[in-house]
Design a protein around this nucleic acid. Sequence first.
DNA 1: CGAATCCCCTGACAGC
DNA 2: TGCTGTCAGGGGATTC
Length: 272
Amino acid sequence: MPELPEVESIKLQLEKKLIGKRIEKVWLNPGSLVFRDCPERNNFSKKLKGRKIDRILRRGKYLLLKLNNKMLVIHLGMSGNILFKEPAFKRDKHTHLELYFKNFKLIFRDPRRFGRVGLVKSDDFSALCGLAQLGVEPLTKKFNGAWLGGKLALRKAPIKSLLLDQKIACGIGNIYSDEACYLARICPLRPGGKISAEEIKALVKAIKKVLREAIKKVGCTIQDYKTSEGLAGDYKPRVYGRADERCYRCGGKIKRAKLGNRSSFYCPNCQT
DNA sequence: CGAATCCCCTGACAGC
DNA sequence: TGCTGTCAGGGGATTC
Ligand SMILES: [Zn+2]
């Protein structure tokens, strides 16, 4: 499932391929995955056609394609992916958007349909509620121990749930929240407000470390993400998905806990 | 406001 | 073989 490192890897790939190119034709699936609150949902395709790709940005797990005067917003959900194919390539039923360029086309595919696309005015980060509410980027200086401490204070929810809350810090998903808690030796189920300043500092460090490491390795290739073409992530999880296996650090048995609808993996022996 | 719960959607996989 | 049930999960909605 694409989290910050996977989306960042895709962003870098898109930059190489798309900057300066003009959209010649657009195909949008009629049962499309356009954001419900997309202000430009009418004539979506027409408004995209003819525009040039100026810049590509990432905010949290959102991909932002800056066009002259507009911005195309893509969220990959959990099974979404971007592919490049020759223009004549036959689309399948999971394709939701195609942007045709001179010698190729960009395909947005998402079998599980949790992804979304949207169009807003250029630099309008407030039109889409999900994008507008995003918190701090975890790889910036603003994301530090003191700042996170302020956000976690008095909170009773498990730290893992708070790390997944995109309104606090954005881009952290199920895999990297577990990975970061593991590195920081913090049990993901612990209430956020009960974590000491020192531990929070370690957690911030761990989050930055796993995200940077994963970006360097082009993300993590598991489950739905593995079918992506052109991107084979090489990040190997330390705990995520390793239920009942042995902890690399202490040899303990890794546990899988349910946290709302999510599963969380941790070592009860060395994460407290 | 915060916390917990449910739901969307469909491929993969287990069990019969 | 082929059917059925279960699971995964980002994020929004709902409820208390
Ligand atoms: Zn351990």
